[in-house]
């Protein structure tokens, strides 16, 4: 540690290069480099394996809606409908989850009794521990039936908004159901991130606000939320990344069709991840390669979102 100053090194300060140290340091560095290689490998292998089908594709990959890839002759497929469905489901989830998550984080940090706060935080974390396939089972085996009444009301009173236009699906296996389940799944992620930043709000800011006679809400609005905003945005983006890539819950709940449809209460739409999981076992011809191409698109989208999230969070760290 203290012996690297080579120019003025004397034999006394020059540490011995022990074989154990060299091996250990290089193993550690090697593991780190291996991780970078794995990540690069993910991108590279997906690129290589998707090349086959992309060069054989007779349709525009980015603007075509249908998926006709399980053939050796003139495959025609594209991700337009899938990408739309992916973004739509994630957007619904984000719209529902973010405000609730901010509320939960505020509750845990500023409203709940101090003793209870840790336990409550742990309980919210439990939501993150439940496997996505169980969420899917719960969604298809329980939640969609419960939501059906709500959907009927929604269509009756808000049906004039195109999003909620009827006729509503009788099974409840709709985009909105998938979005609601995704919202539950990303709730703990956004909550954890927001909770962390809310906790880091300097005590001076909060006490100053209170000393000026502000109520608790005014203190939160003026001291906590401005300080915590980058953290909340970062958390929301991480949640978005998770929602974009979530497979099983969507695959099990949504009754898919490959069209671009903005009607949340009718069956239809499909996400990239769910499409891959459903199609893969039956893929023939260019099928697998085409699915890998779709996976590449998903990878690119989530990579951009996650890098953006990390960037936002990291920038906040520099300021605080």
């Amino acid at each position: 540690m203290s012996t690297t100053d080579s120019s003025t090194a004397t034999p006394i300060t020059q540490g011995k290069r022990r074989i154990g140290d060299v091996v250990f340091a290089n193993t550690a560095r090697g593991s780190g480099v291996l991780i970078l290689l794995i990540l690069a490998g993910v991108a590279a292998f997906l690129l290589i394996q998707s090349f086959d089908s992309l060069s054989a594709n007779t349709a525009n990959f980015l603007t075509t809606e249908e998926w006709d890839a399980n053939t050796r002759e003139n495959p025609a497929f594209g991700v337009a409908a899938l990408a739309f469905g992916t973004v739509l489901a994630a957007a619904i989830a984000l719209l529902i989850a973010t405000p609730v998550a901010i509320g939960i984080a505020l509750f845990i940090v500023y409203y709940a009794p101090r003793r209870l706060a840790a336990v409550l935080g742990y309980i919210v974390d439990l939501l993150a521990a439940i496997p996505s396939v169980v969420y899917g089972l719960w969604g298809i085996g329980y939640l969609v039936f419960q939501l059906q009444d709500f959907y009927v009301l929604l269509e009756r009173y808000l049906g004039w908004i195109p999003l909620f236009a009827g006729p509503i699906s009788t099974t409840g296996r709709t985009m909105l159901s998938a979005g609601i389940v995704l919202a539950v799944m990303i709730l703990p992620i956004i909550t954890a991130m927001s909770r962390d930043v809310f906790r880091q709000v300097p005590q001076g800011h909060r006490e100053a606000a209170l000393a000026l006679g502000s109520t608790r809400w005014e203190m939160i609005r003026m001291a906590v939320l401005p300080f915590g905003r980058p953290g909340v945005i970062g958390g929301a983006m991480l949640g978005l990344g998770r929602a974009l890539g979530e497979t099983m819950a969507v695959a099990m709940i949504l009754s898919p069709s490959l069209v671009i449809s903005p009607f949340l209460l009718q069956s239809g739409n499909q996400t990239i991840a769910a499409h891959i999981a459903l199609q893969y076992p039956e893929a023939t011809g260019y099928g697998v390669s085409a699915l890998i191409a779709a996976g590449l698109v998903l990878f690119a989208i989530t990579l951009v979102v996650n890098m953006g999230a990390r960037f936002v969070v990291a920038r906040r760290k520099e300021f605080s």
């Binding site: 993910v42 290589i48 996505s132 891959i276």
Partner: peptide
């Protein structure tokens, strides 16, 4: 720095993409 950043990015890899990666690797 690069490792820290990309480890963070890697936590966000969709699980289905991890599966596809191995599918592609195993195919080769």
């Amino acid at each position: 720095k690069a490792i820290t950043f990309f480890v963070d990015v890697m936590t966000g890899i969709p699980s289905i993409v991890a599966g596809l990666f191995v599918v592609a690797l195993w195919m080769m």
